[in-house]
Design a protein around this nucleic acid. Structure first.
Length: 424
RNA sequence: GGAGGUGUCGCAUAGUGGUCGAUUGCACACGCUUGGAAAGCGUGAGCCGCAAGGCUUCGUGGGUCCGAAUCCCACCACCUCCGCCA
């Protein structure tokens, strides 16, 4: 959410932002016209309430002096009340419509974000590491994992449907090792560790900006709770409605949780393997900074850096992409994706995503802090993937496969596995 | 699931229909004071407005009333006890 003042003063910029994010710019004019109506009606009801308050005040004085209210006063008060009753429903309606539409206004992309229609407009910022060379044709991760008794999808699909999977034995242990390593790494640099609730209410989904835009990407329970697609939702909302202290910032949270995604728009994509599934486990970074874009951008780089470090620790090759306007979320100011090398597919695939929002989420969630000058400001929020389980696990398996189908364990994970090699 | 209780402007508290639309303490910020501090004093909820000023705000939403933090109804959250499950 943006402030109405900002929207009023930057209509053209916002309409351009809508177009560039492939959203309908009409919403901006709708909000502005509702705002005008809202002020007009509020002026009228304010005036009536003023009169009503004056009468009540006069009666209060009379009662205080030991007198009684006159019948005229009571009568006038009643009349004002009737007028208010006529006016209030319309005012409330406009107010509600306005408040609702405000949630549909996207954020403006940062100045250095390239304008583009879709993923074709994304820019590769850098490529790190060298993809491994094989003297044989590398196999797909699912084939390797099934051979090594690390994965069972056939039975899983019978039980849970398309895109279900069991991780087995070393598959499960390697996943846990990866997640554990990711958590430890974040703990070392001062993040608080949290296991995050996955069932979240509708308010929280609006608050983080997954509603209205991501409605159909999520599962909804019969109790109107959503299954969150990421721990970002619960972590970002952690301090919703609170007033924090500037000295508490930045707040750094690392959350682990199962993640649920309907993948409705991905029919026919990635039908093999476990790079695209409905349920997975992820370690996520969420940071609140002061209301300063330079500060938040520093953290953005730092958070991506942590994920890069993790990939380097693991010995994986990756590239960092600066996402264009058409391929970023409505609430985001700027987004990087990291893509990790998958040898069998012979390409880099998305494994991480890092975004910053300024106060877009904090306004929706009402997270403020008392700044040094005594004023109250909204915090700026950011989030980034640290390690998302089956996808990154698949990358590890593919990159470290040997000719005989065995899989070398990345050095940093050896201590968790108690061995160096997984053999079929 | 049953019974009872609680929900006040960062924290803690006062306030049961009008004589302050919100008390007091603490914390924090800014200003005054000071050689510099401390102490002391003052200021600090949101919205509209250039301003004067106005409106709103006591978990949320309705209602009663000329007037509600205060009464009524519904909902939400938390606490205690009982039951149930682990």
């Amino acid at each position: 959410m943006l402030s109405i003042q900002y929207i009023t003063q930057n209509q053209a910029e916002l309409e351009a932002a809508c177009k560039n994010k492939n959203l309908d710019p009409k919403i901006v004019a709708e909000v502005l016209s509702l705002d005008i109506k809202r002020r007009e009606l509020q002026g009228k009801t304010d005036e009536l309430r003023k009169q009503s308050n004056e009468i009540a005040e006069a009666i209060k004085q009379a009662v205080g002096a030991g007198n009684k209210p006159t019948p005229e006063q009571i009568e006038t008060g009643k009349k004002i009340k009737e007028q208010l009753k006529e006016l209030e429903p319309a005012q409330k309606e406009v107010e509600t419509a306005f408040a609702q539409k405000m949630y549909f206004i996207p954020n403006v992309p940062a100045a250095d974000v390239p304008i583009g229609p879709d993923e074709s407009g994304n820019r590769i910022i850098k490529t790190v590491g060298t993809p491994p060379q094989f003297s044989f044709t590398p196999k797909h991760h699912h084939e390797l994992m099934e051979q090594a008794d690390m994965l069972d999808t056939k039975r899983a699909v019978r039980i849970g449907g398309f895109r279900s999977y069991f991780l087995k034995n070393d598959g499960l242990l390697l996943e846990q090792a990866l997640l554990q390593y990711a958590l430890r790494k974040l703990k070392k640099v001062g993040f608080d560790l949290l296991s995050a609730p996955v069932l979240v209410n509708e308010e929280t989904m609006w608050g983080t900006g997954y509603l209205p835009w991501g409605q159909e990407d999520h599962y909804l329970t019969q109790d109107n709770q959503f299954l969150a697609g990421t721990a970002e939702v619960a972590l970002t909302a952690f301090h919703a409605g609170e007033l924090l202290r500037e000295k508490d910032l930045p707040i750094k949270m690392a959350g682990i949780s199962p993640c649920f995604r309907r993948e409705v728009g991905a029919h026919g994509k990635d039908t093999q393997g476990i790079v695209r599934v409905h349920q997975f486990n992820k370690v996520e970074q969420v940071v609140y900074t002061t209301a300063d874009e330079d500060e938040t951008r520093k953290w953005h780089e730092r958070m991506v850096g942590l994920s890069e470090e993790l990939l380097t620790d693991l010995g994986l090759s990756y590239q960092v992409l600066l996402m264009c306007t058409g391929d970023m979320g409505a609430g985001q100011r700027k987004k990087y994706d990291i893509e990790t090398w998958f040898p069998a597919q012979e390409k880099y695939r998305e494994t991480h995503s890092a975004s910053y929002f300024n106060d877009f989420q904090a306004r929706r969630l009402n997270i403020k802090y008392q700044a040094g000058d005594g004023s109250k400001k909204f915090v700026y929020t950011l989030n980034n993937t640290m390690a998302a389980s089956p996808r990154l696990l698949a990358a590890i398996v593919e990159n470290f496969q040997q000719k005989d189908g065995s899989i070398a364990i990345p050095t940093v994970l050896e201590e968790f596995m108690g061995k160096k090699l997984i053999t079929p």
